[in-house]
Amino acid sequence: MNAMGLLNYWFVIVLMMIGFYVLIAQGNLVKKIVGLNIFQTSVFVFYISMGKITGATAPILDSDWSVYSNPLPHVLILTAIVVGVATTALGLSLTVRIHEAYGSVEEDEINEMDE
């Protein structure tokens, strides 16, 4: 089992866990959405890493090349990036509404107000 072959995936997991930590540990709602973005990006990097072949080129057909990286993960991640921005926009507008209603975007302050 060579560690170098898995190193890239381990970076992905470290990134994902940083995003996860921000999501559960930080109380600020905007910061939480940033954490969600980091989490998402780590998944994108994971998919793109799976499609990579060492020494290959981007999947644009050309007579000079014969080995291409896998185009299918690229397509899926293109879709995922755009959907990710849509969810970010929705989350941020919810944050604005919460700020409107409670005057705060800190989770613990909002919980105190609800009690």
Partner: peptide, 18 residues
């Protein structure tokens, strides 16, 4: 990073949208 991994379409979407 996406460009280095041969995903040029993903890279420019991420740069523009992300």
């Amino acid at each position: 990073f996406f460009t280095l991994l041969d995903a040029v379409d993903v890279a420019f979407t991420e740069a523009a949208v992300g």
